[in-house]
Amino acid sequence: MTRHWKPLLFVSAFLALMWIPAIAFASVTGGCTGSVVIDGTTYGPANDTAANPIVVPIDKSGVVAAWEGSVPFANTNHHGSLGIVVGPWNIEIANWGGANPEDTRSANGNYNLDDFKADFPVAESLIPRGLYELSGTHEADGGSCTAHVMVKIEGSPLSSPIGIATVAGTIVTGLTLLGSAFRRRTS
């Protein structure tokens, strides 16, 4: 019986090791700073782990995100982008750029989350809840920055069809995986 635990121990160790790099990210490089206030809570570069994400209350209406950011270098001829990390890919969701002859090095503004929901290509109830890693870059004549933050779209996974399908898929494939552990009949 003990010999059966060796492969399971190997798999468990592999799974445990996989989580170690997910615990911490280097959030901002290049000296850029920024923050956002959502629903009374201030978030910044420290919100870069799964345990400490930027929380977006998607079910609330009228929520405004007040943001500000700055760069420590000459910001002429700047450009940048922001994307969602999905596996090895980075899906771009926003980009910016310009000559910026005045060399403006900071900016701020307000973003209404209702606009985000209206601009989203599917209905609000279909917006997938859960945790997302956002990755961004900003480059200019004087330097460049990269940033990673975690964003949690608040809500139960069972409140969206994708969440229900995910739970059902996990149960069905888990039971099927268990089925592979049954001995075949030998005649």
């Binding site: 997910a22 990390v85 999905v86 596996g87």
Partner: peptide, 13 residues
Amino acid sequence: QQLAIAPLTTLTL
């Protein structure tokens, strides 16, 4: 990802 435990990184996906 849906339970907000880990995002869809290369490690998970």
